[in-house]
């Protein structure tokens, strides 16, 4: 590869050795899915403004999602194929409850794409699975990739996320360590144009430093933590 900018950089870089020094400790360390990790996640969620429910089973979580939407009188939801794959009972349960469910794919041609987006933008809630959660910061880790829609956790005013206990890591560094060792990290990168770490609702303090939620993204993030393994 060659370009004048790259050549200018090549001419001037020092290539000096920089000792990296000792590796710092993990921000928080405990086995994934352990009670210590769950406790910490709970505290972090409270701090960043994520509302959370603990559910014994997947079925209970899905019932919880439906009940929550009903209570808010929400009629239109946006979800995606990735979530439906991991939680096959979700879309049928939503439809049984009389909710209009949007998922699927935006067309690639400009006109139809635009119309599709406009329809998605009418959703009152978005539902996605999380691939992991990080306890130290209260972060929900969502992915694009096959069937993974970026918009489901972005466009609607509320984002509901489904997470299994075993997916809760002490911190992002711990997840990275495991994903690097197993090769999952590179698989994610090859498959997914977007990996998003969501830490609480959309927020701004741009006017007089007063915290206001939901300026562009969701105003509320609701997590359903499932005890049983998938």
């Amino acid at each position: 590869m060659s370009h004048p900018v790259l050549e200018a950089v090549r001419r001037r870089v020092t290539h000096r050795q920089v000792p990296l020094g000792p590796a710092p400790a993990l921000p928080f360390d405990a086995p994934p899915g352990s009670e210590a990790v769950i406790q910490r996640l709970w505290a972090s969620w409270a701090e960043v403004g994520v509302h959370a429910f603990r559910c014994a089973t997947e079925a209970e979580a899905i019932r919880g999602v439906v009940a929550w939407l009903r209570e808010r009188q929400i009629r239109q939801v946006l979800t995606d194929a990735r979530t439906a794959r991991s939680y096959p009972g979700l879309i049928p349960a939503l439809e049984d409850a009389g909710l209009a469910v949007m998922s699927g794919t935006l067309p690639r041609e400009e006109g139809p794409r635009y119309l599709g987006l406009g329809r998605w933008a009418t959703a009152e809630a978005g539902i996605t699975e999380a691939v992991a959660a990080f306890a130290d910061t209260g972060t929900i880790w969502v992915m694009g990739g096959l069937g993974g829609a970026r918009c489901a956790s972005l466009l609607p005013p509320v984002h509901l996320a489904l997470i299994r206990r075993a997916q809760v890591y002490p911190c992002m560094a711990a997840w990275l360590r495991e994903a690097r060792a197993s090769g999952a990290l590179m698989e994610w990168v090859e498959e997914s144009s977007a990996m998003i770490a969501i830490t609480g609702p959309s927020r701004t303090s741009d006017i007089e430093k007063v915290l206001t939620l939901g300026v562009h993204g969701p105003k509320e993030v609701i997590a359903f933590l499932i005890e049983e393994a998938g």
Partner: peptide
């Protein structure tokens, strides 16, 4: 956000 390339095959949006 960690963004790698444009929308991939099989991705619903991006």
């Amino acid at each position: 956000s960690f963004l790698t390339g444009p929308r991939r095959r099989g991705e619903p949006d991006g």
